[in-house]
């Protein structure tokens, strides 16, 4: 496996829920050490695509590869070593309510690296991750006591709290619901992780500013297929009608017709 080979690859992935085809023969190759941003309208299957990468969903057709290994056919136990290399920042943060902030951040290490890391080292690493996201002093708080932005940062701290760091971080709308300043801080953190820790990022977002800032590559998902793929500067200038309307935030004619009706 060479450095130029993709770390994640989706081949002809199709996923249907009921009568709705959410992903339609998707092909995607994610390069190592780069941030790949996927944008698209709500309900077009962006989060579904992320969940395929970590084996939380299985495709109806097609194949998913991680570091050259096919993973969509693996069982839950066989997926554990793969999942230990991938972190997932969920849209709703998915922090464990019953645990403190420190326990949340330490959880991936206590779960997967016990034996190799002792309790003190796990604690020190968790504290360092909290420091990276600017949340030292929040260790004993519970998720319910935090603001939306703080919760997001705890989720990010949890995503990077592995030793060695994860090879891939999947971000599901990392700036959703945050004010512009907090969004900027999260964007800078995602960039810093990629540049300093060489983590491969796959970011799903609606936030075009964020997409341009953190992405090395930008894809636009439309009706289950990618309709644009390239560097953000190129995609933002694309002539395709759907892409142009999406990046400029202009409603589609059929949406307007519905409103007028």
């Amino acid at each position: 496996m060479s450095d130029t080979d993709p770390i994640i690859e989706l081949r002809g992935v199709t996923k249907t829920f009921g009568r709705q085809r959410v992903l339609d023969e998707i092909d995607l190759r994610v390069e190592r050490g780069r941030n790949t941003v996927i944008v698209g309208r709500s309900g077009t299957g962006k989060s579904v695509l992320l969940k395929h990468i970590v084996g939380l969903l299985r495709p109806d057709r097609g194949a998913v590869y991680f570091a050259g290994q096919r993973i969509d056919t693996l069982g839950e136990r066989a997926l554990v070593p793969i999942r230990q290399q991938i972190s997932f920042v969920f849209q709703l943060n998915a922090l464990f309510d019953s645990m403190t902030v420190l326990e949340n951040v330490a959880f991936p290490m206590t779960e997967n690296q016990r034996g190799r890391l002792d309790h003190r080292k796990i604690r020190a690493l968790a504290e360092r991750c909290l420091e990276m996201v600017g949340l030292r002093g929040f260790e004993r708080k519970r998720p319910a006591e935090l603001s939306g932005g703080e919760r997001k940062r705890v989720a990010l701290a949890r995503a990077i709290a592995l030793d060695p760091p994860p090879r891939v971080i999947l971000y599901d709308e990392p700036t959703a619901g945050l004010d512009p300043q907090r969004s900027d801080a999260i964007n800078k953190l995602i960039r810093r992780l990629q540049e300093h820790v060489h983590v491969t990022g796959v970011i799903v977002t609606h936030d075009m500013k964020s997409a341009a800032e953190v992405g090395d590559r930008l894809l636009v998902l439309w009706n289950g297929r990618f309709i644009a793929d390239g560097p953000p500067t190129e995609v933002l200038q694309a002539r395709d009608e759907h892409v142009r309307r999406f990046v400029q935030g202009i409603a589609e004619p059929e949406d307007l017709r519905l409103i007028n009706a």
Binding site: V54, L56, R83, F88, Q91, L92, A94, L95, E111
Partner: peptide
């Protein structure tokens, strides 16, 4: 709130 999925995603 996706906490069950988060557990699975962490192995």
């Amino acid at each position: 709130t996706e906490q069950l999925l988060a557990l699975r995603s962490m192995g």
